[in-house]
Every structure is written in structure tokens, then in C-alpha cells.
Design a protein around this nucleic acid. Structure first.
Length: 271
DNA sequence: CGCCAGGCCTGCACGC
DNA sequence: TGCGTGCAGGCCTGGC
């Protein structure tokens, strides 16, 4: 997916179209997502007013008054605002038709996403209840990272990507943050010292904030809520650059696998 | 054809 | 025995 910046960008883009809008209808074209879409949504949602939209980790939360819609974009999901009569294309699985004449449309080719309805506190939903700290808040800093990694033998990269510890950092930004902090991704988390934790926490915040400020991303097929492509010209330091020269020192970037995900790093800059 | 891709849940094996 | 931890597998489609 979309990592945190893409979800945040989507959230900000959707907000003005959704807040205060009443739901007119629901169209489910294919309910088979990671969590099957509840057919009853077509009866539950119409008539409800969307009071607001927020984000927790990579989950979007839509306050509908008598309940909440929780959306997740999986690996390949996107949400767009379109005229409600716009022709649906392949992989357009779900529409929230609004009284404004527009609709919010979910497209998700790989169907790893989710549309979930809950009538209780969404933060207590089993999928969200155990999520870790938000990296862009003051709760997360070097001291926090240091405290929460003591004794951990797993690699610092996989630890960064553990959403039960820290939300929102996926494969791309884990690689990029570790480069910026000059830390080797394979280092056991518990052996990253206090000052390196400071650098790393700072790098995580900087990377995420920069991408949000750039208005999206980086992912080739990411589109924001208006259907505009993300900022994919953005340059990565290491992600996807195996064999290419490090932008800092010129040494070829290396590729290895950690937990079945690709890790890219500079053997010279990251120790 | 095989392999790779942004996520993340589940179940299993292991060590304390 | 129980818990936390770490890993592999699985869910899907599309692009190279």
C-alpha cells in the first residue's frame, strides 16, 4: 500500500468532499476483500451523515454517527472522488454514493484492502486495538525507540516495520529512514544505541513528513483522491536502487532479503 | 514462464 | 505451562 504518507494524503484529499455529506447509496461490486464487505452496508449507510474522517496507522476512519467505516488500502488500494455516474472500471469494488452527486470509489486490484463497519469505538476494533505509536506525534522520539527496542534481537528494519510497535512505516520508508540515519538494516534492534535511536526516530519523522508535504508519494500507481498521480519523481536514496551508486558516496547499493521483503542499503554509509 | 511488488494477519516452532 | 518472539505462508492481480 500506500504507506502512511499516502494514507494521510488520501485522508486530507477526501475530507472536504466527505465532511457533512449525507450518504445516498452504497454499491458493492465485489465484496471479496481481505475482510469481506458486509452486504448489509447497503441498508445501514444510506441516510447517514459523514461527520468526519481521520486516520490511525494506515486505517482510514469515517465517522458516520451511528457507527464507523474503517477502510484499509492493502497493497494496491486507492480512494477517489468521482461524479457518481462515472463508469466503473475493473477492480472498482466499492462506491459510497453521496447526496452531492459525487461518490467515493475504492479501487483495489489485489484485494488486500478492507471496508469494515463497526458500531463501537473503532480504536477498540481487533484490527486497530493493538496498533503501535503514531510516528508523527510527540509520543514517538529517540528515547521512546530506545526504550522499546531494548533486548530485541530482531533486525532494526523489521522492528521498524512492526505495526504493533510503530505504525505507518512500510518497506520503502523503512529502507529510506535507515539510510538517512546511517544504520545497517540488519543490526539487531537491541544493539542500536541511544544516539542512533535519536537519529533514526528523527529520520522516520523527516521521511514521512517530507512525502506528505510533497502531496503523496512515490508509488508508481498511487493516485490521490482527485485521481492525480502522486509525486513519483521523488528520489529515493536506496529503495529500488540495487547496484546503482549511492547518492552520497558512490558505492553500489546492495540488496538483500529480510522477512521476505527487499532491503536496500549502502554498505559504506550504513554501519 | 517465473518472479516481483506498497501490507498484514495467522499459525507454527522455539526459547526462556 | 505459558508467554513473547520470530519466521513462513497466505491472500490476490498485474507488470516485467
Amino acid at each position: 500500500m500506500p504507506e502512511l504518507p499516502e494514507v494521510e494524503t488520501t485522508c486530507r484529499g477526501l475530507e472536504p468532499h466527505l465532511r457533512g455529506q449525507r450518504i445516498h447509496a452504497v454499491i458493492v461490486r465485489d465484496a471479496r476483500l481481505r475482510v469481506p464487505i458486509l452486504a448489509e452496508l447497503a441498508h445501514i449507510l444510506p441516510g447517514l451523515e459523514i461527520r468526519g474522517i481521520g486516520r490511525r496507522g494506515k486505517y482510514l476512519l469515517m465517522d458516520c454517527g451511528r457507527g464507523w467505516l474503517i477502510l484499509h488500502l492493502g497493497m494496491s488500494g486507492s480512494l477517489r472522488i468521482l461524479p457518481s455516474d462515472a463508469l466503473a472500471e475493473k477492480h472498482d469494488h466499492f462506491d459510497l454514493v453521496l447526496e452531492s452527486g459525487f461518490c467515493m470509489r475504492l479501487r483495489d486490484p489485489r484485494r488486500f484492502g478492507a471496508v469494515i463497519w463497526t458500531e463501537t469505538d473503532p480504536l477498540r476494533h481487533p484490527l486497530l486495538a493493538h496498533l503501535g505509536v503514531e510516528p508523527l506525534t510527540n509520543d514517538f522520539d529517540g528515547a521512546w525507540l530506545y526504550r522499546h527496542t531494548r533486548g530485541k534481537k530482531g533486525s532494526i528494519k523489521q522492528t521498524l516495520m512492526d505495526s504493533h510497535l510503530l505504525v505507518g512505516v512500510g518497506n520503502i520508508y523503512a529502507n529510506e529512514a535507515l539510510f538517512r540515519a546511517a544504520i545497517r538494516p540488519t543490526t539487531p534492534a537491541g544493539r542500536v544505541g541511544a544516539s542512533r535511536c535519536d537519529r533514526l526516530a528523527r529520520a522516520v519523522k523527516d521521511v514521512l513528513q517530507q512525502v506528505i508535504a510533497a502531496g503523496g508519494s512515490s508509488l508508481r500507481d498511487f493516485v490521490d483522491s482527485n485521481g492525480k498521480p502522486g509525486y513519483f519523481q521523488q528520489q529515493y536514496f536506496v529503495y529500488g536502487r540495487a547496484g546503482e551508486p549511492c547518492r552520497q558516496c558512490g558505492v553500489p547499493i546492495r540488496l538483500l532479503r529480510q522477512g521476505q521483503r527487499s532491503t536496500f542499503y549502502c554498505p559504506d554509509c550504513q554501519r
